[in-house]
C-alpha cells in the first residue's frame, strides 16, 4: 500500500467518514462561517481526501481554520460530516509529528546513570510507535 493510500485509510478510520457519500452539493461550504479564512473549503476537504491529495491539506493552514462548529455536519444532506473528516486530517498530522522514531537499539548509547529506570521505560513507551 502506498503512503497516500495508508494515510487516507487512517483518516477515514479516525473520522468514520465515507467521502463517497458526498453528492457535491456544496451545502457544507455554504454553511461554513470560516469559509473566507480557508484556502481549502469543507467540500474540498471531502473531495481531496477521496482523491488522495492529502499532502496539500496537511501543508495548508485551512486545517486550523475550521472552528469545529459542526454547521456542515448538521446541514449535510448526505451525512458525510465534513468537520469530522477535517478533524481526522488534523489528527493524522499530529500523529505524524509525534513519530520521532525512537528505536530500542537507540536507547543503550543514551543511557545515563543519573536517569531513573522508570523514565527510560516511559520514554520508550511514549516515543516509540
Amino acid at each position: 500500500m502506498s503512503d497516500t493510500k495508508r494515510l487516507k485509510e487512517q483518516i477515514l478510520a479516525i473520522s468514520g467518514v465515507n467521502p463517497r457519500k458526498c453528492m457535491k452539493c456544496g451545502k457544507c461550504s455554504g454553511a461554513c462561517p470560516a469559509y473566507d479564512e480557508m484556502e481549502y473549503h469543507p467540500h474540498q476537504f471531502v473531495a481531496m481526501v477521496e482523491d488522495g491529495r492529502i499532502d496539500q491539506l496537511l501543508a495548508s493552514d485551512s486545517l486550523w481554520m475550521c472552528l469545529s462548529c459542526f454547521a456542515c455536519v448538521e446541514r449535510c444532506p448526505r451525512q458525510v460530516e465534513p468537520a469530522h473528516l477535517i478533524e481526522g486530517v488534523r489528527l493524522a498530522l499530529i500523529r505524524q509529528q509525534n513519530q520521532n522514531h525512537l528505536h530500542a537499539e537507540d536507547i543503550p548509547p543514551k543511557l545515563n546513570d543519573a536517569l531513573p529506570q522508570q523514565a527510560i521505560v516511559s520514554a520508550y513507551r511514549k516515543y516509540s510507535k
Binding site: 456544496g26 457544507c28 461550504s29 455554504g30 454553511a31 469559509y35 467540500h43 454547521a71 446541514r75
Partner: peptide
C-alpha cells in the same frame, strides 16, 4: 447549495451559499 438564511433587521434575508 444554500447553507444559511438569516432574517436581517432591515427586513431582508441574508442568504449564504456556496
Amino acid at each position: 447549495m444554500v447553507g444559511k438564511v438569516a432574517p436581517q433587521a432591515d427586513g431582508t434575508l441574508l442568504v449564504q451559499g456556496s
